[in-house]
Amino acid sequence: MIRPASRIASAAAAPALVVVLLATLPVWLGHHPYYVNIASQILLWAVAALALNVLVGYAGLVSLGHAALLAMAGYTVGLLLQAGYGHLAADLGAIAVTLAASAVFAVLALRSTGVGFLMITLALGQIVWGIAYRWAGLTNGDNGISLAARPAPFGLSLAGAEAFYYTALLIFLMALVSMRILVRSPFGASLAGTRDQPRRMTALGFNVWLIRFLAFLASGFWSGVAGLLYVYYHQFIAPPAAALTASAEILLMVISGGAATLLGPIAGAAIVVIMKNVASAYIERWNLVLGVIFILIISFMPEGLVPGSVRLARAAWVWLRARLPGREGRYTQERIS
């Protein structure tokens, strides 16, 4: 199974090209802070969508409470910074809190699967939102928590749009690579197995519950990382970050792009962030647009935009070929019928 060097080169060429494109993106965007910031938003939401995709796509467990995990990381950073801790301590604390919360979410939600799992995560997410909103003594309620400044790791300030973009890009690439390794690993295979045939997996000797639990922790970890990016990007966090709408947006990214694919959630994040920015420039009704997109995608492309577009393109190609004159066209038509 030794692959020729040329094939390895061509297999490595496409990702390398994309990385180069992403690394030079600020140049293509004319160093315009507004566009660079939108690119940063896409990257941060892509990390969140990749995190949720571990559960939705690979474990077959649909969570509607993931924004709460993201927000919890953001709030922890805000509170620890307020309490006088440094950025590193605050970030580590935030990840620890998010992991602990993920463990609690997982233990409760994994009492059930399918629709029950979705309901429990939704209820848990709303409770976190309720705490953020009502426990004003801790969270400052509706007014939220502001961050004085972005961190400056190794003396490099992230205050500027481009400095932040490169940080987000680095973290995004780390998330993407780790996801790729995870889904191709034996553990990834075990996880997909629990999604498709949990009963058989148990009979084969797999601990289905523990596999799902660990997947939830992995998902929670990257949600926490996305939460760090979120709170540093906005330098502000408030209850809407934990709301059901936010959880639904992340889920929309995963589903619209294509669950259980690596690129789907990223495409979904790009679509949702761009739509949101475009929509909010013209109309105030983002939720309306969100709802309509949801319904359109579910009705016409239930498998997601990336696999869905491939399917539609194929169908269109077959349709075209069938209508072209000549033997080949007839042959195709016969084969279809």
């Binding site: 191709r184 690993s185 034996p186 075990s190």
Partner: peptide, 15 residues
């Protein structure tokens, strides 16, 4: 995989 400790490995490439 069901009977192998390898099933917990999140880093190896199964293929």
């Amino acid at each position: 995989l069901g009977l192998s400790p390898l099933r917990w490995n999140p880093l190896a490439a199964l293929d």
